[in-house]
């Protein structure tokens, strides 16, 4: 073991200097010092670099489309549509691959974001007088998206042995969202009716089936999610 005369302490770390004062140390004859802690290895920041590159590319693309739109202005803000898609790919790409948020929640977020994108596209690509009637996004887009996501979550729940219960809450959320196009059609906001009815029916049936066959799981999962 070594000794630091300045600090009056014995040093067991294998170093030429005192870790306290960084001064010279006296080597003792028994000299037994060890590498007490693992050696430093620089952390790889590959993930951070990827995030930075993706974000920079997204910001550049958004700015470029907005600029081109302004420079070639023909009375239509088409860059708002393209920017929406770039924004979606950027934010939700990072959300999907870079966070440890539950897959169920990611799916709900994706369903909501894709719906918003379609409505945005529908509203901005049509004539301005159709702004109040976002017809195809609501009558076709929304039902198809929610039907697909409800089916996806159902497949996950049926195929998973572990953690199935964790999807119950998200499945219910998607099913409730799945009723929205039907409600909007009922209020005459879009046509045709059939896709909305199919999605609404599948939502209701899914809720009923899950409640009947997984009653205990549903009860306990809701108890956990809503505990105060």
């Amino acid at each position: 073991m070594n000794y630091c005369p300045e600090c009056d302490v014995r040093i067991s770390t294998g170093s030429d200097r005192c870790p306290l004062c960084h001064g010279e140390i006296t080597r003792e004859k028994d000299g037994g010092t060890t590498e007490t802690y693992p050696r430093y290895e620089p952390m790889t920041r590959k993930r951070y670099k990827i995030i930075l590159a993706v974000s920079a590319a997204a910001v550049f693309l958004i700015l470029a489309t907005v600029l081109i739109n302004i420079l070639t202005w023909k009375g239509r803000a088409w860059s708002a549509i393209s920017s929406g898609y770039i924004l979606y790919l950027w934010i939700f790409g990072l959300l999907t691959f870079n966070t440890r948020i539950h897959t169920g929640l990611k799916l709900v977020a994706h369903a909501a974001a894709i719906t918003a994108l379609l409505i945005n596209t529908n509203a901005l690509s049509g004539k301005y007088e159709t702004l109040t009637k976002v017809s195809w996004a609501v009558s076709w887009g929304m039902p198809i998206i929610f039907f697909c996501f409800i089916t996806a979550v159902s497949v996950i729940m049926l195929t998973r042995k572990r953690g199935r219960r964790e999807y119950v809450f998200f499945q219910f959320s998607l099913c409730i969202f799945g009723l929205i196009p039907f409600i909007m059609v009922m209020f005459g906001m879009a046509k045709p009716v059939l896709p909305s009815i199919i999605t609404a029916a599948s939502s209701v049936l899914t809720i009923i089936a899950v409640t009947i066959f997984q009653r205990k799981v549903v009860t306990s999962e809701f108890k956990r999610k809503f505990h105060i």
């Binding site: 302490v9 040093i11 306290l20």
Partner: peptide, 18 residues
């Protein structure tokens, strides 16, 4: 540690030399 050493305490120091 120097203060404690002055009080007569024998101290053995190790560090991760960060």
């Amino acid at each position: 540690f120097s203060f404690l050493a002055k009080q007569g305490l024998k101290i053995e120091v190790q560090s991760n030399l960060w």
